[in-house]
């Protein structure tokens, strides 16, 4: 189970293309996702609940576009790219802060 923890001696390989395909595809994807989010929400294509869900999902997809297309998130000079661990645990805590704070503080909007 914890084998990957010990996998920190292997040299990793980097990939760099001769033409910036990744960047261009990433840019197109981010633009398309954004236009879709604007159209879906501002043209009131659906009711409020599904709209919120869809535009949040699109925003989450944009994270992956930036991470993989621009930020080279899987690269590491040796062994496991530990930043992915940092980002995933960070994401857990981000969701905890936002969701649990909303839950805890709901009573105040019920009271007001």
């Amino acid at each position: 189970m914890m084998n990957f923890l010990d996998d920190d001696t292997k040299e990793r390989k980097f990939h760099e293309e001769n033409f910036p395909w990744k960047g261009i595809i990433g840019y197109i994807m981010s633009i398309v996702l954004t236009i879709f989010a604007f159209w879906f929400s501002l043209d009131h294509v659906s009711s409020l609940g599904p709209t919120l869900f869809v535009i949040l999902a699109l925003a989450v997809l944009q994270i992956f576009v930036q991470m993989f297309m621009f930020m080279h998130v899987t690269e590491s000079d040796k062994g496991f790219p530990w930043q992915t661990f940092g980002l995933i645990s960070g994401l857990i805590f981000v969701i905890a802060i936002v969701a649990l704070s909303m839950w805890i503080m709901t009573f105040s909007s019920m009271a007001s």
Binding site: E16, P20, G23, Y27, F70
Partner: peptide, 13 residues
């Protein structure tokens, strides 16, 4: 800002 993210990526390239 989305475009600037792309141009920043090009700088890295």
């Amino acid at each position: 800002l989305l475009t600037s993210s792309f141009t920043g990526g090009m700088a890295t390239f």
